[in-house]
Amino acid sequence: MAHCARLFRFSGNRIWLALLAGLWAGHSNADEVVHLDSAAVKPTPFQVRVAQQSGQKLKSVPGTLLNGYLTRPLGEGPFPAIVLLHGCAGVLHNDRDVWPERLSSWGYVVLVVDSFSTRGVHDTCNGLLADRVYDAYGALDFLSKSSFVDSSCIALMGFSAGGITTLEAEQLGGAERLMDRKFKAAIAYYPICSTANGDMAVPTLILVGELDDWSLAKKCRDMMAKRSGKGSPVSLEVYQGARHAFDAPEFKAPVEAYGHRVEYDAAAAEKSFSDVRAFLKQAFGG
């Protein structure tokens, strides 16, 4: 496995959502606000064949302009990088500040993708935004063209709904097969695993809490048991006693959201950070 350049060089539902979003909207450690396009939606080979048979020509649907938050380690690079996808409540403190600071201290460039603001979306906690898969690949393209990024070493990382998108983006034979650029690895924090079959195109780490009543650990264990074995290795870590968003310090005071308990767990959080760092090091050949 090729090594990445300069790896680790440096060490009421709507009410609470609105309060959290407003609390952190102007409080960021991100180095730079950037603008990027989501990837164009390409027709599948099957759709192309059907269209050709009827004398039609299908075109890709242009991407959507998005906002992003870019954080870089000190130095010129090129550095390995992480595309980070937020949860159903939008970009919160854990996404915008905490994880970018942590990952950049490990030597990674971090691009947090805001899938909501330019679309006028407030939250998707009662559903999913399918286009977020193309947001992830648009961010990959953006980073791959940056001189300070090692384009061969970019991972995708998502939380909750962003974790679901991460699994969807890297599911073997899915959207990833239509994309010119590929991620190197994927990390999904507390996704709903019943939406995926578990066969992944890249090495994947899934992290869930044993007591999570929103993203059930059982569903992830079931998914792992039903995997065909095709594709890349997939690892599942289940943290005892932990609930949804166990890594997010803004939930030190537990919150009830959409009928589910959201709560920070320091022990599970610290263990997951160690697991993520080790996984990235292995995936990037460090």
Score class of each variant (00 low, 15 high):
residue 100 P to D: 01
residue 145 K to I: 02
residue 172 L to E: 08
residue 280 L to G: 10
residue 15 I to A: 13
residue 79 F to I: 07
residue 276 V to G: 04
residue 179 M to D: 04
residue 15 I to M: 09
residue 26 G to M: 05
residue 241 G to Q: 10
residue 95 D to R: 00
residue 134 Y to A: 07
residue 224 M to A: 06
residue 99 W to V: 12
residue 11 S to L: 14
residue 66 L to H: 09
residue 75 G to Y: 07
residue 163 G to P: 14
residue 170 E to I: 15
residue 112 V to I: 13
residue 142 F to A: 13
residue 64 T to V: 15
residue 111 L to F: 09
residue 237 E to F: 11
residue 160 S to F: 09
residue 22 G to P: 13
residue 194 S to E: 09
residue 90 G to D: 00
residue 20 L to V: 13
residue 196 A to H: 13
residue 75 G to E: 08
residue 10 F to N: 14
residue 85 L to K: 00
residue 239 Y to G: 04
residue 36 L to Y: 06
residue 85 L to W: 00
residue 14 R to L: 14
residue 231 G to M: 11
residue 225 A to S: 15
residue 188 A to K: 01
residue 263 E to S: 15
residue 112 V to D: 09
residue 35 H to N: 14
residue 40 A to Y: 04
residue 180 D to S: 15
residue 96 R to D: 04
residue 97 D to P: 13
residue 113 V to D: 03
residue 261 R to T: 15
residue 50 V to H: 00
residue 240 Q to L: 06
residue 140 L to V: 12
residue 51 A to H: 00
residue 244 H to I: 08
residue 214 W to R: 07
residue 82 I to L: 12
residue 184 K to W: 00
residue 284 F to D: 02
residue 208 V to Q: 03
residue 164 I to S: 00
residue 280 L to R: 05
residue 41 V to W: 08
residue 131 D to S: 15
residue 101 E to N: 10
residue 55 G to F: 01
residue 283 A to M: 01
residue 114 D to E: 02
residue 126 N to H: 12
